[in-house]
Amino acid sequence: MAQESLLVSAFYLLVFTAMLITYRVVRGPTLPDRVVALNAITTKVVVIIAVVSVIRGEYYLVDLAIVLLMVNAVGGLILAKYMERRALYD
């Protein structure tokens, strides 16, 4: 099965890139760096869920990926608004 090994290697590559970005989350100099890195990690997690759903053949996991993407959008907007407001108070 060439395709299954391709999917598994893509899965490990995505996990590796997410772990690379974790460095920027742990020591970003400022708050916006961490927010950018967290958004990138969440997008990668969405793609990882889609790949896993194709590997195991359980396609209901795609709904979970769509919901996680929407929650990511709302969370990013709330963090951006928080950064704008925080500049006013300190």
């Binding site: 400022t30 708050l31 916006p32 927010v35 950018v36 958004n39 997008t43 993407l69 929407m70 990511n72 959008a73 990013g76 907007l77 963090l79 951006a80 608004k81 928080y82 950064m83 704008e84 925080r86 500049a87």
Partner: peptide
Amino acid sequence: INPMVSHAIARGAYRYG
């Protein structure tokens, strides 16, 4: 969604200082 969130973060980062 991805460009929209990046636009919001860029504006927030500029206002954050």
